[in-house]
Simulated assay, not measured.
Amino acid sequence: MSASDFDGVVVAAGVEVPYSRQPTTGSTGELLAQAFGSLLHESGLSAKDIDGLGVASFTLGPDHAVDLAWRLGLSPRWCMDDCHGGASSINLLQHAIRAIQHGDANVIALVSGDQFQPSDFKNLVENYNLTTRTWLRPLKNGGPNSVFAMLTQRHARRHGLTRADYGAICVAQREWASLNPKAVYRTPMSVDDYLAAPLVADPLGRLDCVPVVGGANAILVTRDDLARGPKAVRVRGLKCLYNADHQVGDGLETSLKQVAADLWRQAGVSPEDVDLVSVYDDYPVMVLAQLSDLGFAADGDLRALIARIASRTLPVNTSGGQLSVGQAGAAGGMHGLVEAIAQLQGKAGDRQVKQAKLAVVSGYGMVEYRYGMCANAVVMERA
C-alpha cells in the first residue's frame, strides 16, 4: 500500500460556517445547507455537479443524509450517514475516495455540523449510547468531563506532568486562535489565567473542557480532472482503527499507535516531514496522547513535545482548535480537516504556516464508558 492508493481523487475545497456560542433560531439542517452553499461558492461548482453526499450530525434527526439531499435539491448516486463523532469526517473521506475511484460518484460533498439547544446537549450526553444511558446516566456523572478527568489523572501520573503542562497547550492554541477571525474565543490567555479558571472535575478546569457551540463544516472530494483551480489537496495516507482494546486498556493510548507505522509508510513521509498537525482536541490530554501515538514524541519525552507546541515550533491546531474555536458537535471532527486544507491551499490568513506542503489530521471520539473507541488519521499534501 502506498500514496498511489489515492490516485485520481483530490480534496478541492473546505469551508466552515462561523461557529456561534449562543443557540440561534436556525436548525441543524439549515446550518448544513449553509455549509453546502459555501462549499459550492468556494469550489466554483453548482448543485447539479454534486452526485455524492455524506453527512455527520448528532442533531439532524429525525432526518438523515437522504432527507438533506432532498432539501438541497440533490439526486446523489452515493449517499452516506456517519455516526463516529470526532472520527466521522476522516471516515467519510475514506469512503468518498473509494467511491470516486470505483465510479460510484464523481463529486462528493461531505458536510458535518450541529446546532445545540440546551436540551439537545443534555440529551446527547445522557443517551450517547446504550452503555452511557444504562450505567453512567444514573450516576449523574455530568457527561464526558468526569471520564476525561480520571484519564488526565492517570496520564499526569504516568508522565510526571502538572496542570500547567496541560495549560501550555491551551495557551498555545489560544495564541493561534487570536489570529483566526472565526474563532469564538480569541481573548489572550496566560498559564495563570488557565490555572485560575474554576475546576470542573479535578484536575480539569473550565479551560480544559471544549466549549459547546453551533456550526458546520464541509469539504468537497472530487475526481482530479473535475477540480477547478490550482489549489487542490491530495491524500497520501489514511488509516483507521476502531475498538482496538475493547475498553480494557487505560485509555492513555489511542489506536493511532497501532496504525501510525503503516500510515507513515503508506504516505512515504515521517512526522519530521510534516509542516502542521490538526489533532482532535476535546481535552488537552488527548492532544498529547494522539501526537505521541502518531510519533511526535518518539523518545517519550512529552515535556519536550509540549515545549515545541508552546513555542509553535510544531504548529498544532493552528485554527485555535476546538478548545478556542469551539466544538460544534459532529463538525468538531471536520474542523481540523478544514483547517489543514486552508493551510495547504495558502488561505489561512494571519495564521498561515509558511510554505505549508504537508499536514496530518487525526480524529478521535465515540466514548463508550471510559474513553473513545474510534481513531483515524490522514496525511495530506498540497497538490
Rank of each mutant, 00 (worst) to 15 (best):
L124W: 08
E126R: 13
Q153V: 14
P203N: 09
I169N: 00
T152V: 07
L288D: 02
R303Y: 01
R234D: 02
I50R: 02
C79D: 00
C79L: 05
Y166P: 02
A164E: 15
L220Q: 01
S43D: 09
G229Q: 09
A196E: 04
R98L: 10
D193W: 08
D114Y: 15
Q153M: 10
D250H: 12
A227H: 06
Q115C: 05
S319K: 02
V9R: 01
L74H: 04
G54C: 07
K140S: 15
N106P: 00
V361W: 10
G103P: 03
F121S: 06
S119R: 04
L32M: 10
W78E: 11
L31V: 03
F36Q: 03
Y166K: 02
V10W: 00
S2D: 01
G329F: 07
F36M: 02
N376V: 07
A47M: 00
A105N: 03
R223Q: 07
V212G: 03
Q34F: 05
S75G: 10
P18D: 08
L60C: 13
L151C: 10
P271S: 06
S20W: 05
A342W: 14
Q247N: 12
Q352D: 06
D165R: 08
A109K: 08
Q258W: 14
N243L: 04
H246K: 11
Q22L: 09
M366T: 13
R133A: 15
S255T: 14
L179R: 11
D250S: 08
T25A: 09
K48V: 13
P315R: 13
A109F: 07
A227M: 03
H41W: 03
H335S: 11
G61E: 15
S4W: 10
S119M: 07
G14C: 07
D63W: 12
A197Y: 12
L136E: 15
R308E: 00
A377C: 06
R137T: 15
L241V: 08
R223W: 02
A3F: 02
L241T: 08
L204V: 09
L124I: 09
G142Y: 13
Q115T: 11
E272A: 14
V287C: 08
E42F: 01
A3E: 03
K239W: 04
Q101A: 05
G8V: 01
K354L: 06
C209V: 15
Q94H: 07
L161R: 14
I306K: 00
G237F: 04
V277Q: 00
